[in-house]
Design a protein around this nucleic acid. Structure first.
Length: 258
DNA sequence: AGTACCACCTGACGGC
DNA sequence: TGCCGTCAGGTGGTAC
């Protein structure tokens, strides 16, 4: 699930529920999700602290603690935060459980365990070490064109490359290309970056309104028609291709190669 | 730099 | 009902 709009939803959710409460206890239910730190290390780092602010960059979420250090989460394919008061609501795939002094809990729920949790002193250093590119939403057109400089090849895998622009995943990348009427195999140097940029913003913002406010996607979106052989609003049929190991859906009639 | 392939992990689904 | 392959909106490492 988690692409930029989903992670932005998680950020706002944690912001609403979990800031400024003292952490009483941390239980690591599955060590597998920890990155570069032991269960005891996480417990030691978080216990007694409070989360005082949040920051999202691409698909990464950073929670700043009152001592200036940051707890970060990457949600993988199936991760999500779950805030609750009654342990009966503890989610099924709870991998790490934070308990606040007021008795409420924040769990990291992740069925497939492909997500990662860790600590960092400086998110900017962390992101540059990981070679993560600029965040898709805080980018202007200048930065967007700059980010693609020096890159060749098909646009679809480039959109998924977090080192170029951070935040897009398989689903939204397809939607963005569909909205921009760009074929997923279009070479970067041949495409209309302006149109792509506008659609990227439009689709990601619609995604946030969808995840945060539950607003449905417009009928003109492919998202609701995802699946080979489904109808495109243009009357054509949706096709699929494997591009960069990922299934790509598009409408050959709307999205032709230049 | 790009691409192809493999791996990590778990569950759902379709076919036999 | 059970087994098996395939698929899933993520990333990382390898080799070419």
């Amino acid at each position: 699930m988690p692409e930029l709009p989903d992670v932005e939803g998680f950020r706002q959710y944690i912001e609403r529920t979990s800031l400024d409460q003292t952490i009483e206890q941390v239980e690591v239910r599955d060590t597998y999700v920890l990155k570069g730190i032991s269960p005891k290390g996480v417990a030691r780092a978080l216990t007694g602290r409070r989360f005082e602010s949040t920051r999202r960059h691409g698909k990464y979420l950073f929670l700043r603690m009152d001592n200036g250090r940051h707890f970060y989460i990457h949600f993988g394919m199936t991760g999500q935060p779950v805030y609750f008061k009654d342990m009966a609501d503890d989610p099924r795939f709870d991998r790490l459980l934070i308990t606040f002094t007021n008795g409420s809990h924040l769990a990291y729920d992740d069925q497939r365990k492909l997500g990662r949790i860790g600590l960092t002193d400086d998110p900017d250093d962390f992101l540059s070490e990981k070679r993560i590119g600029p965040d898709a939403l805080s980018l202007d057109y200048e930065g967007f064109t700059q980010a693609f400089k020096g890159h060749r090849g098909a646009i679809k895998p480039a959109l998924l490359n977090q080192g170029i622009v951070a935040g897009m995943g398989n689903l939204y990348a397809d939607e963005i290309l569909y909205q921009a009427r760009i074929h997923p195999l279009t070479p970067i140097e041949k495409l209309d970056l302006r149109r792509l940029f506008k659609c990227m913003k439009k689709v990601l913002e619609a995604g946030i309104e969808h995840t945060v406010e539950g607003k449905p996607f417009p009928d003109s979106y492919l998202l609701s028609q995802r699946g080979k052989g489904k109808d495109c609003p243009c009357g054509g049929k949706v096709e699929s291709l494997k591009i960069g190991q990922r299934t790509t859906y598009f409408c050959p009639r709307c999205q032709s190669l230049p």
